[in-house]
């Protein structure tokens, strides 16, 4: 039976850190290594397999439901990483591919090669350092929210029942007073995201299938989820 999993290409510290962080979500996290040596060594409990840069992905096709898998391309060499991304994309159209790049130039190439998300290491690290120095409090608060270091959570909640809003606009509702949460933005069906006070969001009546990005404590978020899920309205 085909399984969903996380496929990490590259045998380095990045691969290990990624594997460690996403293990909670995937049953099968596999690290793929280019070279054959030390294949049996199971680094920190993750399965390690060999692969090469040819387009022979039959084994993956047999074992994984590639549509629902996620692939991380974290090879040390940017050129090989781009080559790998191209190879994966040409074989699996629906696979989510996240790739690491050392600089912006490679980041653009990786996007062109078909990566869904590219993390330029240098720019990302520099950006975080800049934020830590320029906006230390904002960075600390958001970091804690994003990486589960505080009770505050950020969540995306889909509106299943818009009746309770009775054709209201997002900016008209007292989210914080009425629901104890703060709505940052609204995502529409077409996946475009709008800040709650933007002029576009101000003229958008809340509809079914809109997604709210909310910040709040777990209880309030769950209550709100119930509300827009229709349970409380009914």
């Amino acid at each position: 039976m085909k399984t969903t999993g996380a496929l990490i290409f590259g045998y380095n510290d990045y691969a290990y850190e990624i594997a460690k962080n996403i293990a909670y979500k995937y049953d099968d996290v596999r690290i793929f290594k280019l070279e054959e040596e030390n294949l049996k060594s199971n680094k920190n409990g993750f399965k390690i397999e060999k692969y090469d840069l040819s387009d022979e992905w039959d084994e993956l096709k047999e074992n994984f439901d590639m549509k629902n898998c996620i692939a991380f391309c974290v090879l040390d060499d940017d050129a090989e990483n781009i080559f790998l991304t191209l190879s994966l994309r040409s074989s699996f159209e629906d696979l989510s591919i996240i790739a690491l790049s050392k600089n912006k130039e490679s980041a653009n190439k990786l996007t062109m090669a078909g990566a869904n998300k590219v993390i330029p290491i240098v720019q990302t690290t520099a950006g975080i350092i800049g934020d830590m120095l320029n906006k230390p409090i904002v960075t600390e608060v958001l970091h804690n929210i994003l990486y589960d270091k505080s009770d505050l959570k950020i969540a995306q909640i889909q509106v299943n029942d818009a009746e309770c809003f009775e054709g209201k606009y997002p900016a008209d509702i007292e989210w914080s007073r009425d629901h104890g949460i703060i709505v940052l933005s609204v995502m529409h069906k077409d996946m475009s995201s709008e800040f709650i006070y933007s002029s576009k969001a101000k003229h958008h009546i809340i509809k079914k299938d809109d997604i709210f990005i909310v910040v709040g404590y777990e209880k309030e978020i769950k209550d709100f989820e119930k509300l827009i899920g229709g349970n409380l309205c009914q």
Partner: peptide, 8 residues
């Protein structure tokens, strides 16, 4: 940092 970004 990359691991945490991947997680999120």
């Amino acid at each position: 940092l990359v691991g945490m970004i991947a997680r999120e």
